[in-house]
Structure formats: C-alpha cells, structure tokens
Amino acid sequence: MASTLATISSDRIDSRFDSLKGAGRKALVCYITAGFPDTRGTLELMSGLEAEGADVIEVGVPFSDPIADGPIIQASSQRALAGGMTLDKSLELVTRARLAVPVVLFTYLNPLLSAGVDVLERAGNAGVDGVLVSDLPLGADPEREDWLAGSGLAFIRLVAPTTPSDRMSEIARTGSGFVYLISRLGVTGVQSDLPTQLPETAARLRAATSLPICIGFGVAEPHQARSAAGIADGVVVGSALVRAAGESVASALRLARSLRAALDDAT
C-alpha cells in the first residue's frame, strides 16, 4: 500500500523532468527551510513558489549542526528549531500544502534516522516524492543507502566539483530523480558569479549519467540561473530564497518570479 503510493510519488519527479524536456524548458528547484520564517510562512512559500513556476520544492528539515550550510541556512535552521520544527512537523506541512509539483525532503542523516524506521513510508504518505541526504555520500553506509534507494522515493544524490568521473557514474547509478551538482567547493550560500570550472564539471557529469542534472550552491541571481541552466537541466536556488523569505514571503516570491523568467528566457 505505502510502497505503491511511494512509487507513484517518485514518478512525479521523472514525469516533471520529462515534460520540461519535451517543452524545451529548464527546471526551477526552490529550497525552503521548514518552519522558517514560521509555519504559516512556510505554507505560503510552498504554494506561492508553485504558483510562480517552481518545478520542484525542496523542503529543508532544520538540523542543529548543518556542516554543509552557510550562514543564511544555518540561521534559518536555528530559528525554525527554536519554533519547534521537527521532521514530522515538516511532513505535516507538506501534507497541508497539497502541492501539484513534486516535493523533495532535504535533510541531514541524523534527524532522518531519529524519525524511525518507517520514516520514508510516512514521508511518501505525506506527499514527499524524493529524499536528499546531504551527509550521506556514496559508500559511506551501504545499508542505509540501500534503504533510501529501495524506498520507492526518489533518492537524489549529490556530485561535487572534486568528484572523479568514475565515481560520478556510480553516484548517478545509485540515485534517481535527478542529480544535484554542487557548483563550487564550499557550503550553501549566496555568490555573485559561477565558478569557471563549472561547465567542465557539468560536462563530465553529463557523460556519466542520463539522469537530469540540477546545479545548486551559490545560484542566487537570475543571470546565474540562466548561465547554469545553459549547461544543465535545472537550477536549485536555496540561500537567496531563504534570505528573501527572511524579509518577507512576497520578496521570496518576487525572486522566484524573476528566476523563472530568466530560465524561460534562456530556452
């Protein structure tokens, strides 16, 4: 029962990328931190971002010690935790938002493991389509990687500029949905340009997989989104949206609108 639902869920990511490809468009993947600026703001952001043309919503589960995140997402996570946000409350928000676009749960491994052995089933039932674990690289924990890969949810894996090409193939082979290409060395955050070696890294990844590729980490401005989309199937925007959401929901939605326009202009 649950696995049937979950299979349908992961298919929603595949069909979204199929239809984008058919239309010659690029994916806009929007990251938000669950519980930031507050519960109501998260719900408004989810439905608002969908309305502004987001193709995938990444819902970040706040963690007390986010080593892959820069100051903006760290601060949003602390505020969300202070407001009592948990993984299960994040799932409730996904259920309440009832989005038509696919949802990816973006989490560190510790809160995911603490949520119990049936957490992936609960996530699927809540309307989550895929899971991304930022501190579970290929080969780190085969048993838990198999658990994620076999859950019926898409298992979104990350590739870095430092990843050798043969390892890229292996990462992509064990993942599904899309591959998240980290644009630069470092943590999440807002940057003013894209690294010069990014096209070469994206080309290596393209040769290693047939999965869609989305580029994130440091993508903040419409012009960056346009450039990144030129060498990938989509972009992930996180810190810039979270920073804007810290000002107001409307400000975040304005940014999403300009990103959508830039991506559509590029195609």
């Binding site: 080593i67 892959a68 579970l136 290929l138 780190a140 085969p142 894996r157 430092t162």
Partner: peptide
Amino acid sequence: TQHSGRFGAFGGRYVPETLI
C-alpha cells in the same frame, strides 16, 4: 571509501560529497 574506518558499527564518513 567503502567499509573503511569503522570500529564495530561506529565511525565512518558521513560528510558532504565534496570532501570524499
């Protein structure tokens, strides 16, 4: 990177891909 650095069930390398 596989199966290295364990003490029984403990240890491992739970880090961002960039560091592997």
